[in-house]
């Protein structure tokens, strides 16, 4: 039973990782908390749903969701953050402007869906359950885990193994010095936001499939989860966010399975609180990462 819940937790955690990694990447590079990230996630779920109900295959919906969420994320950077950054005072301003963007996107989704919960058609994903060593795992869960794993691997490869990723890391560490080596940070920001949005969009589709429930507010709890995960993992740390997402997913499924409903969040957040008491900068965080930028 515990093993079963751990397995479920890993699947959920993988989806959380997709969501949180982009959130974290953006925070790492600009010290901006993009509170519209949940709305981008929701837009991805709606895009895939729209594609499927209009007769498109799921894989196409998945790709379109990633593309649209990626573009939406880039647009948010352009509209909400770019001008604000020139003031040098963007940390708090960005919170407000991204809440604004989030409200706009959610309102559009609310209008389109008529405030209804929409669902994928019944046969969108084949229902198949496998029994392995006493554990039950559905084809959908396998797909979620595989998709999350593949996307995380591709993202990590891009960030750590390609010249573009090298520029992302350089701008994250020291944007001024990166400019002196010929890096155009605006191009790097575009790539980063696209990647963050595309991952969130993918997470949105997976969550939409898993719970078969897509609605305009669905991103909001994930924003809180994302927030918890990047703090738990260590602000700006990619491996930290991965670890924290899996841990958070497992804590959640375990508490939901074994504790009364009213207690689950209390226990999860108590756990987080204890972890942060022991490791104030997160599991893999570095001391300086949590500080707001000193230079004006």
């Amino acid at each position: 039973m515990i093993a079963q819940q751990l397995l479920n937790g890993i699947v959920v955690g993988g989806v959380y990782a997709l969501f949180a990694l982009g959130f974290n990447l953006v925070f790492g590079i600009q010290r901006i908390l993009n509170l519209a990230h949940g709305a981008v996630f929701m837009a991805g779920a709606f895009t895939a749903w729209y594609t499927v109900v209009n007769g498109g295959p799921l894989w196409l919906g998945f790709l379109l969701a990633m593309a649209l969420s990626g573009c939406l994320s880039v647009l948010i950077e352009l509209v909400c953050f770019r001008r604000l950054r020139r003031t040098g005072d963007e940390e708090f301003g960005a919170i407000i402007s991204s809440i604004g963007a989030s409200l706009v996107i959610m309102t559009i989704a609310q209008r389109i869906s008529g405030t209804r919960i929409v669902r994928f058609p019944f046969d969108t994903f084949p229902i198949q359950i496998y029994q392995v060593a006493g554990l039950r795992i559905s084809l959908l869960q396998l797909f979620m885990a595989a998709a999350a794993f593949a996307l995380v691997v591709v993202m990590a490869w891009f960030v750590y193994r390609t010249p573009w990723g090298r520029r992302i890391r350089a701008v994250t560490e020291n944007a001024r010095a990166a400019m002196l080596t010929g890096v155009n940070p605006n191009a790097v920001y575009r790539q980063t936001y696209f990647m963050a949005g595309a991952l969130a969009g993918a997470a949105g589709v997976l969550v939409g499939l898993a719970f078969n429930s897509i609605h305009y507010m669905m991103g909001e709890p994930y924003l809180l989860f994302g927030f918890v995960i990047i703090i738990l993992g260590g602000l700006g740390s990619i491996p930290g966010a991965l670890l924290a997402a899996l841990l958070f997913g497992m804590m959640q499924t375990l508490t939901i399975a074994f504790l009364p409903t009213g207690l689950t969040n209390a226990v999860i957040f108590l756990g987080l609180f204890l972890i942060l008491l022991l490791r104030p900068h997160g599991l893999l965080g570095r001391e300086e990462a949590g500080q707001l930028r000193g230079r004006r």
């Binding site: 010249p163 090298r166 520029r167 890391r169 350089a170 560490e173 020291n174 001024r176 010095a177 990166a178 002196l180 080596t181 010929g182 890096v183």
Partner: peptide, 21 residues
Amino acid sequence: RQVFPGMSVQENLLLGTTALG
């Protein structure tokens, strides 16, 4: 100096080629 502390020596050098275009 302003090297990128979290990147390897070689990566710092390779990053320099960005300016080449």
